[in-house]
Amino acid sequence: MAETLSRLPGAAGELVLRRSGPHFEIIANGMFLMDTRDGTSERLLVTAAADRMPAGGRMLIGGLGVGFSLRAALDHPRVGGIVVLEREPAVITWNHGPLRELHGDALSNPRVRCVPADLVPWLRTCDERFAAVCLDIDNGPEWTVSDTNAALYSGLGLDSLAWVLQPNGVLAVWSASASESFAGLLRARFTRVEVLSVPVSRGEPDVVFLASTPRPAATDPADFATK
């Protein structure tokens, strides 16, 4: 039986950290969000993007989670500085606390800047450019933690994500399921799109969407609204 370690308020409702044997679980507003049992696809999200990005470039990670993605970025030889956005203070606190040993205290690495902010409004004012953007803040384009996050996976949201990429940059998006409609939106905005499937022990495979070399777009991130 899982042991509840912490309950804290969050943007998407109550956040709960539980321990089940050697594993940790995070529950958001009563919905299972993530655990530490595997992490293969979360690591692939970062390593696949890093393999394709310009060497030494900076990476933006949307969603800290349990730190698997951040650890993979720090360990990849092509990644320089890392900015990780996490809107839930509880998740940041837990990664400094009981989750720290899972990723070698990655948040304390001098190459990492952790920004306690919601990615959606942050994009509207971002004046930085990244060699790679890795998005893992939901269970996928069709299963978001909050309604406002759905805007990220729209055409306008993808335009805003492309805006913060370097011309030869890479966008990677994690999903718990396939989505041909989302893949179509990516193909309309990037010259190359790949879909990687990762088998899991139960249910349909996890998916990592990779999109590189943004096409020219007229959308300014200031126009990105959270409707």
Rank of each mutant, 00 (worst) to 15 (best):
M1S: 14
M1G: 11
A2Y: 09
A2C: 12
E3I: 13
T4C: 13
S6D: 11
R7L: 11
R7E: 04
P9E: 09
G10W: 05
A11H: 15
A12S: 14
R19D: 02
G21C: 05
F24I: 01
I26W: 04
L33Q: 10
D35Y: 02
T40N: 14
S41K: 13
R43K: 13
L44E: 10
T47C: 05
A48P: 13
A48R: 14
A49D: 04
A50Y: 02
D51W: 01
D51T: 05
A55G: 14
G56W: 00
G57F: 00
R58W: 03
I61P: 07
L64F: 01
G65Q: 03
S69L: 06
S69I: 03
R71K: 15
A72W: 05
A73Q: 12
H76C: 05
R78N: 15
G80P: 03
V84I: 08
V84D: 06
V84M: 08
L85T: 11
L85N: 09
R87H: 14
P89S: 06
V91K: 02
V91W: 00
I92D: 11
T93N: 13
W94R: 11
N95Y: 05
H96Y: 13
G97P: 10
L99T: 09
E101K: 14
L102S: 14
G104V: 05
D105N: 15
A106L: 10
A106F: 11
R111S: 06
R111K: 10
R113E: 12
R113G: 12
C114V: 09
C114P: 12
V115F: 02
D118H: 07
P121A: 04
W122D: 10
L123Q: 02
R129Q: 11
A131Q: 05
A132D: 07
V133M: 04
D138T: 01
D138I: 03
E142D: 09
E142F: 11
E142R: 12
W143K: 14
W143C: 10
W143D: 14
W143M: 13
T144H: 08
T144L: 08
D147S: 15
T148Y: 15
A150P: 10
A151D: 03
S154K: 06
G155A: 09
G157T: 01
L158T: 00
L158D: 00
D159M: 08
D159I: 06
S160A: 09
S160T: 03
W163K: 12
V164H: 07
L165E: 04
Q166K: 13
P167S: 04
P167V: 04
N168Q: 11
G169F: 00
V170H: 00
V170I: 08
L171Y: 00
L171K: 05
A172L: 01
A172V: 00
V173E: 03
W174E: 01
A176V: 09
S181Y: 06
S181C: 10
F182Y: 01
A183T: 08
L185I: 04
L185T: 03
R187H: 10
R187M: 12
R189P: 07
E194K: 07
V195H: 01
V195P: 03
L196V: 09
P199Y: 04
P199R: 15
S201K: 15
S201P: 15
D206L: 09
L210F: 02
L210G: 05
T219P: 13
F224W: 03
F224C: 01
T226E: 12
K227F: 12
